[in-house]
Design a protein around this nucleic acid. Structure first.
Lengths: 347, 347
DNA sequence: TTGTAAGCGTTATCAT
DNA sequence: ATGATAACGCTTACAA
């Protein structure tokens, strides 16, 4: 059975179809008599009329849906971002199309989105810098954790995250620090590292090159990184992992190696995903407001879309992007003062 | 700047617009001369033509996108399901719209989907039984873990999951068993429980009513459930949690209470999410192929959509649904034989 | 082999 | 206050 259209409603109500559109569209200047308006609405109700968003989209060249591209749905952090965005979008009447760049190249996803006249895209941590800038020209996009001259973005205060971790570890008395992070050039990772390194430098310390481990930003990566660190002759007493997944892997590696955390090794992560509180000891980490980032990104995007597409001619993107979202250290069980130096007899 | 349409291509190539449609549409019987075909394609390329899926959708009453509704994106299990579905859909040229029933009521999502002429919906564990059946009449839907007379579905072998858990625990020598599960009437949970209970009954055992804990299917729920169990006078020596999130929470509760797992308490979960291997001890659990379920559901749905919508008149849905996906026990560190009975002197 | 005409369900711009 | 009419970009008969 074909779906009920405005024309059906119109006929049944004895009016023209465009008039039905007027009434249903609603917000239009109220140039319709109460009587007919009521009649039309009643008939629409009776017939179970549902607006056809597709048809509307064709006319408006807008689809009332937004896309979101994330690198990895398995990372609860991104699940959080998506949940936040979805919440806002749904409230505003937008659907959200999900694209997992781990499965399919981001470019293909953008293609597909664009063919669907998606109104805008949220891109989180897929190395937007490397994406063809041309695609953005036609598209509304807001980047997450990737500053840009031309695009809107929402960011966490990544340098502060690194700084907080360093500060915490130094305050505990550590002097031999390690760092586990991905080789990728994603902004958030880079900045977390930089913040960490800079704070150390300010304290006259540095991370020995053998204590800097490049791994994939996953549990497995973190585990491998920590294993390598533990094998070092002069291993660090504390390690900062630039995301929680790696920190969790690092913790796992310590447990497997019989190295006590935090007594012999302190570990600090970043993100504060739920799992961080599940392991033993619970993970000290830097809380990043993933959900809020997703929500903000969605709000920003929708505002841009509704203010007439094409990323405006008014203020530069940079200005219109909100200031970075604050982060905060969450001290839990995986960090403690370093072990006393071996009580050997060299005095 | 307006987007390039078929009409633009047609004009530039000196042909009519429908002819361009013929050529671009492709699969149609090849009633176009090589020469013009090439020319058209070349011009399209030059102009950077991109098909407008929305317009196509309006004609076909199909949107080439599918929706997926899950109860909770935070549960990595569902992230897996989504990833599987997304992979398949994307390969087949479909976009996937995500809907998180935790944020917004499933009904509203279905409404929104339907307005967008979504071609079909995958519904996972949102109590499809409780949904208005009328909505399905117009929609292609495949249910995950929710058997139905009228709808296609893909299921895991949930009863077997419960059975395997029971079998494992009994084989270890446990006789006082506990069960932690949600009160919700979701099929998978119900069946896991039933499988568990039945196997026990077959062995002449049962779960004492005070050892059956109804909680929300989350980490917090599991933690609460286990706390209650630990407070019991005659507490169980082993507990089956009907998903891993609860099992993880239960484990956490034991650790907090200083109860050694698995020495004093065995815990078996269900799902086998990645986190299960992160905690210490690693979680014994029943592996369910989440990713594969998502992929299958997507394949089934797309096949149904392409075979002409409206859930066919041929075979009953039940038959066309694939047989349940097998599950398997993954024995890890959270289960062991029960502690010896207190060596008190009652002999 | 190709062009013409109609129509998918809306919205928007006019007259009336 | 309401109704024609055109338009959105495409597919699909049908005619040439």
């Amino acid at each position: 059975m074909p779906r009920v259209t405005m024309l059906d409603v119109a006929r049944r109500a004895g009016v023209s179809q465009p008039l039905v559109s007027q009434v249903i569209g609603g917000s239009r200047s109220v140039r319709v008599s109460e009587a007919t308006r009521d009649r039309i609405l009643r008939v629409a109700e009776e017939l179970g009329y549902r607006p056809n968003v597709i048809a509307r989209a064709l006319v408006h060249s807008r689809s009332y849906s937004i896309g979101i591209i994330i690198p990895d749905l398995y990372n609860p952090f991104f699940a959080d971002v998506v949940a936040g965005a979805e919440r806002v979008a749904s409230d505003e009447g937008y659907a959200v199309m999900l694209a997992n760049a781990a499965e399919v190249a981001a470019e293909r996803h953008i293609e597909a989105f664009s063919a669907r006249q998606i109104d805008g895209i949220i891109i989180d941590a897929v190395g937007a810098a490397s994406l063809d800038l041309a695609v953005f020209a036609e598209l509304n996009a807001v980047l997450i954790d990737e500053p840009s001259e031309t695009q809107l973005s929402v960011m966490s205060d990544a340098p502060a995250a690194g700084r907080l971790a360093a500060e915490h570890l130094l305050a505990l008395g550590h002097a031999r620090l390690g760092l586990i992070g991905p080789a990728s050039d994603l902004w958030a990772f880079r900045m977390r590292e930089r913040g960490f390194m800079q704070f150390l430098r300010g304290a006259g310390l540095r991370v020995a090159s053998s204590h800097l481990r490049r791994v994939s930003p996953t549990v497995e990566g973190g585990r491998a990184g920590m294993r390598a660190l533990l094998a070092e002759r002069d291993r660090p007493t504390a390690v900062f992992c630039t995301n929680d997944l790696m920190a969790l892997g690092a913790l796992k590696a310590c447990i497997e190696a019989g190295v006590s955390v935090p007594r012999e090794m302190s570990i600090c992560g970043c993100d504060d995903i739920e799992t961080a509180r599940l392991v033993t000891p619970e993970l000290t980490t830097v809380h990043v407001r993933a959900r809020e980032m997703g929500a903000r990104a969605a709000r920003l995007l929708i505002r841009q879309v509704e203010s007439g597409g094409g990323n405006g001619d008014d203020k530069p993107a940079r200005e219109r992007s909100a200031k970075p979202l604050g982060v905060r250290l969450v001290t839990r069980g995986s960090t403690a003062p370093p072990p006393p130096p071996p009580s050997g007899g060299d005095t």
